[in-house]
Simulated scan of single mutants.
Amino acid sequence: VIAGATFIGEHSYSTDRHPIAVGRPDNSDLAYAQDFGKRIMDKIESANDMDALYPVDVRAIKRPSQPFFPLLRFLRKVIKLRKSDTPLPRTPWVEDESMCAHCGLCVIACPAGAIAKGDELHTDQAKCIKCCACVKTCTKKARVYDTPFAVLLSDCFKKQKAPQTIL
């Protein structure tokens, strides 16, 4: 490995009501990624041989800075949520069956194969990884995943993080 990076993307739990890193990656992020790609290319082109392409330890990438108090507030709220025995949704679901057009976009988008073509109203709980790809691709907004963690993440982490790289 000769380079590594962490880039910010919109959180899979992000919704209009509870936005989490909405619009990320933005134009600034994309420009940063393009510049990073150029720096990798420069590293490759300037190497005389394979031994000159020194490896990097991607574990050394700086974690994006996180203010301490929002993190502490988030952890406190997670503990309170867990202790409250609030039932957590197991999978995304179709809230209003009349909104589902059975287009199959959720089937295609699901990386775990948890939604079957022809049975788009149901999600296999054993296969679902809660990535919300089905929710994000549903053009009719029929699929939802209303988790209390979205509220906590949206409330506690409003400050934008910057991408980090190692080269």
Rank of each mutant, 00 (worst) to 15 (best):
I2N: 09
G4R: 03
A5F: 13
A5T: 10
I8L: 14
I8G: 06
G9C: 14
S12E: 01
Y13M: 15
S14N: 04
S14K: 08
T15P: 10
D16L: 10
R17L: 14
R17T: 14
D26K: 00
D26P: 06
N27V: 11
D29N: 09
D29G: 08
L30R: 10
A31V: 02
F36Q: 03
I44D: 08
D51A: 13
A52T: 11
A52G: 07
P55Q: 13
R59Y: 01
R59Q: 11
I61C: 10
R63N: 13
P64Q: 03
P64G: 04
S65Y: 15
F68I: 15
F69G: 00
P70T: 13
L72D: 05
L72N: 10
L72R: 12
R73G: 01
F74I: 06
L75A: 14
K77R: 15
V78W: 12
I79P: 04
K80S: 14
R82P: 02
R82C: 09
D85T: 06
P87Q: 12
P87C: 00
P89Y: 10
R90S: 15
T91E: 04
P92H: 06
P92S: 01
P92Q: 02
W93E: 15
V94N: 04
V94R: 02
E97W: 00
E97Y: 08
M99T: 07
C100N: 08
C100Y: 08
C103N: 07
C103R: 10
G104N: 02
V107W: 04
C110D: 05
I115D: 05
A116N: 11
A116W: 02
A116M: 09
K117D: 05
E120Y: 02
Q125S: 13
Q125G: 02
K127G: 03
I129K: 02
A133E: 11
A133T: 02
A133S: 12
T137F: 00
K140H: 09
R143H: 01
R143E: 10
V144L: 12
Y145S: 06
Y145L: 10
D146W: 04
D146V: 07
D146N: 10
P148N: 06
P148S: 02
P148D: 05
F149D: 02
V151A: 10
S154K: 05
D155N: 14
K158Y: 03
A162H: 09
T165I: 14
I166V: 07
L167S: 03
